[in-house]
Design a binder for these strands. Structure first.
Lengths: 331, 331
DNA sequence: TTGTAGGCGTTATCAG
DNA sequence: CTGATAACGCCTACAA
């Protein structure tokens, strides 16, 4: 292992000179700086991250905490975050908390103990007080997936209302007026917002959405919901489902009961995940830009801990978009 | 931040006493040790990981490097590894290399620069010389997904031959004798081994596998393969596909061409991934125990760096198993 | 513009 | 059995 001292000796200068030159500090002539830098790279110098973290009392690690990294949704987020981190001097450390608050807090504490000042959490349910407190302790805290007004500037979220609108408009545009909406039990907030967006469009166009066509379910029971909907297939022309997995399961339930998709009923999902290409027919979906949001979250977190850069006041909100495939019958 | 010194002062002992007591070193009386430990936890002491890593010249980080964390297959591996790491004193850092060797090497170097001595790599194609060299530099190196004879003891792999057997036997057992096998272009090794297993079973039972029913493809073209196979549906009763995604796409191609599954043709995939429950019919698949293998890899890596524990000579090989669903017509 | 010296929190090596 | 003391590699006043 080659240290600052080694290269200082080789260059005939002091360790502090090397330390500064390498980090572009101090007023060194280009000549000296270059000499030191080339020497360093020739000798294969790598700064000892632990020593640096010790003296600066902060690490170069960004913690990225998600509920379930095995789901493609979060996998894609991780990838966006990781790719963004590659262009920085930070390294990414991902943690999985399975929607268990204690596991989450453990991960946070372990990160803090390592001097981590940048933490990104994807959370739907974590209580606001905890997050607020955390934002005071962790300068680079960013919350992704939800808008929390008290710490709005450190939230990265999606326009769910607009997502609902997109789905509903696409249905109406193609002549599908008798709609059912299948929402997610566990993800109440996003569900509610998207439903708002859907209702907004329907009301504007004078289309009625029956109360008993608004159904709450989860991934396990979604196929049954599809079968139930098949019973009233004749009075239904479209189903908007909370996410792609639910959409596909509903679609499967429908098809298993002899309903043709999209001929009899059109289906739209949310997320635009890897699942969309695997269903038959392939699933039209409203894209949730996970990848982009996660990589933005990385940059945002770094801004908070790098005083140099000024934060602009543009909202950290992302817009969904409709990705057409073959589960909606065209007008 | 509370340090060793703080608690030493409070306890009226030296910092070294505290350091040792906390790590269960030295011959301290239970009384003293307990006093120190309770004091430490009362004061909320957390060892400074960076200081420790600096002096010990090694970090508590295990690097876990995968080709594409956004795929559920690797997501599940990560989860297994992460969960296993929770019961240890190590933290997990995941990297994504997109099958690009330079990105992989960067990740490795970054890990090494941080004093990381435990690295787990999932790799299909990385060249053996590189891995061998790495195994000399990184004491806790583990390769997952492939058997490399030269460093066999640090490889964690699956019995692909047996996986092929399971699939073929299940087909034959249910009376499906006219088979097609769809393999993966990019994953040559696993493909070849599984094909061996399939052929073995067929030969044993005197069933012929036509050469032009052995097809190489990739995820993009798999649906077309399904459509092509539909042309000769009458002379086909089963398709064994390289993985679940390929299986489902083949199935979709088949169904889009009017072939009924499993009535006309039965289909088996590999991996037993999250996709299996989403297809219609749900996909019978040979399970690749990613989760278990990854968590085993963690323990194995730690064994290599903890001289205390002795390594037994049991092979680090895992067995696949058949998970029945509804894509195979029962005899 | 450069170098010296002290310290970050921990562990390990010595003496006592 | 315990406690000074010297590192680990780096950064940053402060001095020159």
């Amino acid at each position: 292992m080659v240290t600052l001292r080694d290269i200082a000796k080789a260059a005939g200068v002091s360790t502090s000179a090397v330390s500064r030159a390498i980090r572009d500090q101090g007023n060194y002539s280009e000549e000296v700086r270059n000499k030191i830098k080339t020497l360093a790279s020739e000798m294969g110098y790598k700064p000892n991250i632990n020593a640096r973290a010790l003296v600066k009392k902060q690490s170069d690690i960004i913690g990225f905490i998600v509920p379930d990294a095995s789901q493609p949704f979060y996998g894609l987020m991780f990838k966006g975050a990781y790719t963004a981190s590659l262009t920085t001097e930070y390294r990414l450390m991902i943690s999985n908390y399975d929607n268990d608050h204690r596991t989450l807090d453990n991960a946070v504490e372990s990160l803090k103990a390592a001097g981590c000042r940048n933490i990104i959490i994807h959370t739907l349910h974590t209580d606001i007080a905890y997050l607020k407190k955390l934002s005071e302790e962790v300068p680079g805290l960013v919350v992704i997936g939800r808008l929390i007004p008290e710490i709005q500037e450190r939230c990265v979220w999606i326009e769910n209302f607009y997502a609902g609108r997109l789905a509903a408009e696409h249905m109406l545009k193609n002549g599908h007026h008798e709609l059912a909406v299948v929402l997610h039990d566990y993800v109440k907030l996003d569900s509610a917002e998207r439903l708002q967006g859907i209702k907004y469009v329907l009301e504007m166009q004078g289309v009625k959405l029956k109360d008993d066509n608004i159904i709450y379910t989860n991934s396990e029971e979604a196929e049954d919901i599809g079968k139930q909907l098949a019973q009233k297939a004749s009075e239904l022309s479209g189903v908007i489902a909370f996410n792609d997995q639910v959409a596909i399961k509903v679609m499967n339930g429908l098809q298993a009961s002899g309903v043709k998709i999209p001929q009899d009923i059109s289906v739209i999902g949310f997320d635009d995940s890897i699942f969309c290409e695997l269903s038959l027919p392939s699933l039209t979906s409203v894209k949730y830009p996970c990848y982009e949001m996660a990589s933005y979250a990385i940059r945002l977190s770094i801004k908070f801990t790098n005083h140099q850069e000024s934060l602009d006041s543009q909202a950290n909100m992302f817009m969904p978009s409709l990705i057409e495939r073959h589960s909606v019958l065209k007008a």
